[in-house]
């Protein structure tokens, strides 16, 4: 099965549809990013699908939460507000609680993808929660 590098989380994920064509939309199975296939051969290349920032980040976090079984609380809005501020000021959806605007801090950040929600009940900025966490 072909694997494609996600430009958001920098992880390769399997391209499930063998009949994919350039221009097709694919969802990263690691971070939930909505991507567009820029090429298929000699190997698949994906780029971020052009979307308005608010739609992009809300769609991504919804898909990621669903994939991982995480939920949101009533603090979602204030966190998304911070993510959009980071996008405007620093060019990407960096975690609003971290000072370092680096790739691993692009939401859903590496920490969150690597088990911090299961460990702490929620991610650092309180966006993703375990269903039974307080």
């Amino acid at each position: 099965m072909n694997r494609v590098l996600c430009p958001v989380c920098n992880v390769r994920f399997p391209l499930r549809d063998p009949d994919s064509d350039p221009g097709d939309t694919v969802i990263c199975t690691v971070c939930g990013a909505c991507l567009r296939l820029a090429a298929i051969a000699p190997e698949p290349v994906a780029e971020r699908a052009p979307e308005p920032p608010e739609e992009e980040i809300n769609g991504r976090i919804d898909r990621f939460a669903e994939m991982r079984g995480f939920v949101f609380d009533d603090g979602r809005e204030i966190v998304v507000e911070g993510l959009l501020q980071k996008y405007e000021m620093f060019g990407d959806f960096y975690c609003p609680c971290r000072m370092e605007n680096v790739d691993e801090n692009v939401c859903p950040c590496l920490d969150t993808r690597s088990g911090s929600v299961k460990r702490d009940g929620h991610c650092l900025c309180g966006l993703f929660w375990l269903p039974d966490a307080e």
């Binding site: 204030i78 911070g82 993510l83 980071k86 000072m99 900025c125």
Partner: peptide, 10 residues
């Protein structure tokens, strides 16, 4: 604080 941080805003 950080101007973007939700906990800081709270």
């Amino acid at each position: 604080s950080l101007s973007t941080c939700p906990w800081c805003k709270k």
